[in-house]
Design a protein around this nucleic acid. Sequence first.
DNA 1: ATTGTTTAGTGAAAGTTTTCACAGTGTTAA
DNA 2: TTAACACTGTGAAAACTTTCACTAAACAAT
Lengths: 214, 214
Amino acid sequence: MNNLDGISERTIERLALYRRLLSGLLEKGLEHIYSHQLAEFLGNTPAQVRRDIMSIGHVARSKKGYDIPELLTHIDSILSSGGDHRIALIGIGNLGRAILSYFNQQHSALRIVAAFDNDETRVNRVISGCRCYPMDELKEKVEGEEITLGIITVPGPSAQIVADALAAAGITGILNFAPVPLKTPEDVYVERIDITTAIEKVAFFAGKWRQKGT
Amino acid sequence: MNNLDGISERTIERLALYRRLLSGLLEKGLEHIYSHQLAEFLGNTPAQVRRDIMSIGHVARSKKGYDIPELLTHIDSILSSGGDHRIALIGIGNLGRAILSYFNQQHSALRIVAAFDNDETRVNRVISGCRCYPMDELKEKVEGEEITLGIITVPGPSAQIVADALAAAGITGILNFAPVPLKTPEDVYVERIDITTAIEKVAFFAGKWRQKGT
DNA sequence: ATTGTTTAGTGAAAGTTTTCACAGTGTTAA
DNA sequence: TTAACACTGTGAAAACTTTCACTAAACAAT
């Protein structure tokens, strides 16, 4: 289910990291890089780097390692192959605003083009270059602006309602920050980021680790 | 490496979800729950629920399913077994503030007790019940306040410096929101949340999914 | 009591991801 | 030209995670 073209979910995540890294290296004028250098930067192993790069069908036999511009172009073409996307963000609270400013500074292929909230005091203005609308205009704007992805930053109890609205508006992917799992139609891809769970996980493993050795 | 007491990393994440869910159900006065109901709430399978619960050594043969208070207590004791933690947050930007307000409303066992930033205008005040200090007081406060975990919400270029400072101050776990992998000593557990990567991943899979069928 | 039904617990299978280890090859140096 | 080296590509093994499928037990109904 999550394996298109033989590229696994995990590999896609790392490809996004490779892309960021390579693009930085390119700006510094570097031309070539070895798998073990990439691994060093990313904190994984050379074998994994090579397998990831292999999985997108990249071939570059050279003693100098990978050609950075070439590899970057290739990774970019894979990651972009899902098409262009315009994004809606729902929930203009602290987290929502943080993501707006954090995300809309960079990036051209992916942009948050509209934000929504139920609270009227948060609406009808522009935050980080993004217009804010009341929730009941969601469907209209999603269709009008050709929005295909949604980011949910509303409190837990409202998240499912928002997800339903997004799905009804025809969105195909959701990034959910609310601390609840969403029920969505099969054809909507959902990714969750659960900050509380992440901290609890760190607390558990950090504690355990300290108790033992390693 | 990430498998203490036979409990896998993934299971720990789900246990945190079970705990939240069960605690909500308990407040509603529910007493028992079946594995298939838990699975329904969490969007996974009954078999996985049972395996997770089994892995913490919980036994409760009853035709009525799991006893909620009992199971909750047990999960809680596992998740708390990493010990209590006081948390420092570094980087009082939009994201940092969002996490402060988001996190410090609830939760007692884990609390963000100090925030730090290089920017003097963000410092020496209280945000969401959390005192803000300049960076150069980090070590002193970490030791004085018995802080054991750190949350990094600074921009990418500063993240490694902050991580080094945290490690030097004796912290054992880090949650890193900066879009760069960190190099840390072996005895520091690091978890990363990469918002940009998450969005790129959704864009990829949502696009692919739409192109094909399911 | 007996029987039927439904559920938890769990060994084993299946699926996924990472790592190992080595063959083949471009590159450099002699 | 040849030899030594270091790196990629990759089959196969290992490690990890999820799912299947069955056993035994609790409970309800008779």
